[in-house]
Design a protein around this nucleic acid. Structure first.
Lengths: 125, 125
DNA sequence: CTCGTACTTAACTTGACAGTTAATTAACCA
DNA sequence: TGGTTAATTAACTGTCAAGTTAAGTACGAG
């Protein structure tokens, strides 16, 4: 089913890559509590301003945050919706995963009732 | 409050990094439908076997998959629980995010009722 | 014990990214 | 007009991850 995955792959890529970095995750977590300027975001992270600026660009490019202008300040705003895709993907995988166990469970129950001419071979590929 | 985030950071890192790669995500999706051998996993991915092997190692190291031995086959098994942390983290961020808007909402309602001696100063850092 | 299959390890190339310092833009203040 | 603060861009470096080929390991079949 690789064909089904083509749509929105880039978006998922971006979302997960954005969250794969601990600094960016911390930024997102902080932003979840309220908007903040670049300097405010940089303060707790033993990192230079340009470093933070780059991370913000990554987050902005994949739609996780948006930025406006307020005098010389550039407050960052979290766009939580961008993370929906990431959660959705994982949830979908888990759904399929548990569904599989539901089937296995039913199968095992079936075997217990009447272990006829069936065999638990490898899942048919 | 960066100190609060120290615990389990590595684990989250690993989970998100694992999912940040489209090939690995495809492997996880396939594994969600049932266990598979390395060759079976490699087949649809225009990539050499060692390449897949590396990806599997990444997934294994962060607990997303586990591997057993069956003759010369090495069937891979998805451990869905490892993704819980990733989902949990995002959900937590979203919770804080929406909570913030609930507060803002209440504040605005408050202002409409009696805009007395209170002023909407900048949000406290 | 030799051969084929399934997979891993080793060694290497390539490319992207995190982080730095230095210079630049943009807005406010005097 | 010049100076300060806020933030970005530019240029560079070190590191790490992804992918390759080639060789090695482990197991079963004959």
């Amino acid at each position: 089913m690789t064909t089904a995955g083509t749509t929105g792959e880039d978006r998922l890529d971006a979302a997960f890559i954005a969250l794969a970095d601990p600094t960016r995750r911390a930024i997102v977590a902080r932003l979840a509590r309220g908007d903040a300027t670049v300097s405010e975001l940089a303060a707790p992270f033993a990192m230079t301003l340009p470093g933070i600026s780059k991370h913000l660009k990554v987050l902005e490019r994949c739609g996780v945050i948006s930025r406006t202008r307020h005098a010389q300040f550039r407050p960052c705003h979290l766009e939580a919706g961008a993370l929906d895709a990431a959660v959705g993907w994982i949830e979908e995988s888990r759904r399929a995963w548990s569904e599989r166990f539901d089937k296995l469970d039913a199968h095992l129950r079936d075997l217990q009732r009447g272990p006829a001419a069936d065999q638990a071979g490898t899942a048919g590929g």
